[in-house]
């Protein structure tokens, strides 16, 4: 009888551990929130992506429609190549869709904002977005401003 209570409580202890682990995986790190949705991949070249991270959101008009899947550098052109996974339910975007790296709030994280274009031709999966604008770097802006004052 005594051994039985011990075994039951150890069993519940282990079960609680497993439930807690699942909670961490699903609720805290959100592993299947993105895995469920069908997505297609777009790519974009930026001159500066400082502050952008993998899994940052991709938005259209402020609504999250995807995630940043990879950031790599193309040393030949000195540009960053960013992979964007966009939900298929959004549909294919126009060829002249623009991508801009924006900051959320004053101290918030960076994300990619897409502005759909008007072109009749559509982007296919894996295509590069051409109309891009990189991250605004405050120090650089101030630097440019100061040099322009000098002129």
């Amino acid at each position: 009888m005594r051994m039985r209570t011990i075994e039951i409580s150890v069993g519940s202890f282990v079960l609680a551990g497993i439930i807690a682990m699942v909670f961490l995986a699903v609720r805290v790190s959100g592993i299947n929130t993105t895995a469920d949705d069908e997505t297609y991949l777009l790519q974009a070249r930026f001159d500066d992506v400082s502050g952008l991270r993998e899994r940052a959101k991709v938005t259209i008009a402020g609504v999250t429609v995807g995630r940043v899947t990879g950031i790599s550098v193309d040393a030949e052109y000195g540009e960053a190549v960013v992979g964007l996974a966009v939900q298929s339910s959004i549909g294919l975007l126009a060829l002249d869709t623009g991508a801009q790296i924006v900051t959320e709030g004053v101290m918030g994280g960076r994300y990619v904002a897409l502005t759909p274009g008007a072109d009749e031709e559509l982007l296919a999966s894996g295509d590069f977005l051409t109309e891009t604008q990189g991250a605004l770097v405050l120090e650089k802006l101030i630097g440019d401003f100061v040099t322009s004052l000098g002129n």
Binding site: L24, V28, S29, G30, I31, R55, G109
Partner: peptide, 12 residues
């Protein structure tokens, strides 16, 4: 916000 920033491998 938590889901965006927490990675299962790196953090958990």
């Amino acid at each position: 916000g938590m889901r965006d920033g927490v990675l299962i491998g790196r953090d958990i």
